[in-house]
């Protein structure tokens, strides 16, 4: 069974003239780490929101481990780290984890155990009692990821998890992702970092203008940046 099956998704924002997603299809096999690449405005974040049930009013199907969305039960198998640092800045790391853990319906005991585990995993155990407003950008980004991991999801969706992060934190995040994938977690990674995407992911989906323009194995691509340029006619950071 695939972790994620998306078929023919079309979605437009209210008042927008163009579709944010147009007939977009994507498959992520169970246990794979897959890159989702595309320039700004390609529809990557919108796709993430559609998958995670934040967006309604689209046509097409989204299935998570065979369960057709919208299915609130299926949400428990997804971990999602959005591009923005979506945490409560005046709360401590532990308070944020407790809050999101409760939202994920974990018991108090599970929250306590899993909080310690993910804090260790992302290297923030020593700062767990500090308000995250005092954290560096890299630390906040790591905690953003920790929240997504708290309920031990089977499918992890990461939207630009290393934006604005120093090389040390970026390295820490990528090492964490490798370990998670090796332990069997499926990961869909939306990123601008071509080199890392090529190094980490076994498959890749290219998106442009709300459309899927390539879906295949990373091993078939020699130079991802060159390949992307050929397919889209522009660089990742072009508007």
């Amino acid at each position: 069974m695939n972790a994620l099956d998306i078929s023919s998704i079309t979605f437009s924002y209210e008042g927008a003239s163009a579709c944010a997603l147009q007939n977009f299809s994507l498959t992520v096999a169970d246990g794979r780490m897959q890159a989702l690449l595309g320039p700004n405005g390609a529809g990557k974040s919108t796709l993430m929101r559609v998958i995670t049930g934040q967006m309604r009013g689209y046509s097409g199907d989204v299935c998570i481990f065979g369960r057709k969305m919208p299915d609130r039960g299926a949400l428990s198998s997804i971990g999602y780290a959005p591009q923005a640092i979506s945490l409560y800045k005046s709360l401590t790391a532990r308070e944020n984890l407790r809050f999101f853990g409760t939202m994920a319906n974990l018991s108090d005991k599970q929250i306590a155990e899993r909080s310690e585990a993910v804090l260790d995993q992302i290297g923030l155990a020593d700062h767990a009692g500090e308000a995250i407003a005092t954290y560096s950008g890299g630390m906040q980004r790591r905690l953003n990821l920790a929240v997504a991991l708290l309920h031990s999801p089977k499918l992890l969706l990461l939207d630009e998890p290393t934006v604005g992060v120093d090389p040390q934190s970026r390295h820490h995040i990528y090492e964490t992702l490798i370990r998670l994938n090796e332990s069997g977690m499926t990961i869909l990674l939306s990123t601008h970092m071509m080199e890392e995407a090529q190094r980490l992911c076994s498959s890749v989906t290219l998106a442009d203008g709300g459309k899927m323009i390539y879906d295949g194995l990373m091993s078939e691509i020699d130079n991802l940046e060159k390949f992307f340029l050929e397919k889209t006619g522009r660089g990742l950071r072009d508007d």
């Binding site: 999101f100 994920a104 319906n105």
Partner: peptide
Amino acid sequence: NDGTLQRLFTYDV
């Protein structure tokens, strides 16, 4: 604006 509200919709809430 910071996406925490949207993030809540990714849970069974």
